[in-house]
Design a protein around this nucleic acid. Sequence first.
RNA 1: GGCCCCUUCGUCUAGCGGUCUAGGACGUAGCCCUCUCAAGGCUAAGACACGGGUUCGAUUCCCGUAGGGGUCACCA
Length: 486
Amino acid sequence: MVDPVVVRAAPSPTGDPHVGTAYVCLFNYALRTKRGGRFILRIDDTDRTRYNADSERKIIEELAWLGLTFDEGPETAGADGPYRQSERTAIYREAVQTLIDSGAAYRCDCTKERLDEVRAAQRARKEQPRYDGHCRERSVAPDAPHVVRLKVPRDGETSFLDGLRGTITIANSTVDDQVLLKTDQHPTYHLATVVDDHAMGVTHILRAEEWINSMPKHVLLYKAFGWDIPQHFHLPLLRNPDRSKISKRKNPTSITWYRENGFLPEALLNFLALMGFSLGDDQEEFTLDEFVAAFEPDAIKTSAPVFDLTKLEWLNGVYIRKTPAPVLAAKLVAISPMAAAADRTLLEAIVPLIAERMKRLTEFEDLCDFFFVDKIEPRYDDLIPKKRTETNTAAVLRAARDVVANSETLTPETLEASLRALGEEVSWKPRELFMSVRFAISGKKVTPPIIESMCLLGKAECIERLDDAIDVLGDPENPILAAPSS
RNA sequence: GGCCCCUUCGUCUAGCGGUCUAGGACGUAGCCCUCUCAAGGCUAAGACACGGGUUCGAUUCCCGUAGGGGUCACCA
């Protein structure tokens, strides 16, 4: 029996819920579910200028849509709250005081202007832009506006363990005296994350790779506080097709976008898992449970995967096909006004015809609109097969109309048999007959299987549409007898 | 640019020293099936970045080089 873990996700409520957040959450969720323990949602809202009031709610909603659930968070009471960092300022202030008292941090009242000048000068000298330590040995009064900075050793190096990469060592000379507490008295990420992870008993930190270079600051903080360092695993960043860090300019990044564009949560989750983990055995399709069972944190990939929307679409199609019709119908209703307005029984009957034709649920409307309109207006040219004439086509469609009219009830088997028999009779290839009928019934070239579609549409509606098509071809009052084309 | 991370088909990957004339998936092309489109089946093209080591033997281990990425904020 392995020890339970405490993991967390710490999204920042500054915008739309990000797929990167879902990606990181998935791996945290997997570890917590595999090992037992707790998964905490902590809202990192320490940047009050970028704060977006809707964002937190959206993040929680979209993660819930994906099926990634938390044991503790702003909306799930637990023993480690509050779960918004903006509500924990007293904790950080106290922590900062400890650091100042021990000499690990210091107050700084340098103005933005001075900082800019210093950095500009450093850049001009081709040096690393960084804080020059101006306030390191000064004593800045606590009652005047100031920030608190971490006093990073000038030399030496800091090593830490990454669960995926082993020991990483970074020279302290490349680490800046990071601001820990901002002028507005809110902490920066670095302080808040270390303080909270410790306070909440976090044992494993699975987060994005972009934090690796910040690790020395965090290690220094853990040491200054005298705290144990949780195990860290830095996940590779999801990438745009050009291999840069995934961004909304180059790739959809909002989870909301994926939901609204007809992606299934199971498919997105499966795909994200594939981006960072391999089940081996060439197994690419798996459930969340199967992923969790196979998951081992130290087997997470280190190389950065390109987020390939095309492959996601394929996988989404796989999931659509394996979703039971009633469930798929419900999902369509949730996303498509046309599906929502449709008769539910009819919708559920249509679903099996289109399930294998959709990569996204949003394709439903294009595929099925002809079921829900009153009148089809087939184009003259579409109705007449190549090498057939107007009069001949009108006659054949009239015969098809009669086939329908003479049927007791429309069933796929009998309708197909009679239409094929008709085709034979008039020497039309099945392909020609069905295409002409398809245009008459749907007005379009690509549809679900037309026989089944006609059965769902109903006898009366089919007769009406065939009559309309015959009208398009010529004078209905002047019937033309069926005649062989050659 | 400094530092850090990464490096197998276009993309996602399997491979953990001999099983590799390198396997699978997406995509692409062709064929089959077929009432359209799909789905499905079959086939094809397509990769170990490069150079040194280590070793009887490197895709696999080590070191360089190159390439890609990240990071250098009172943003996370």
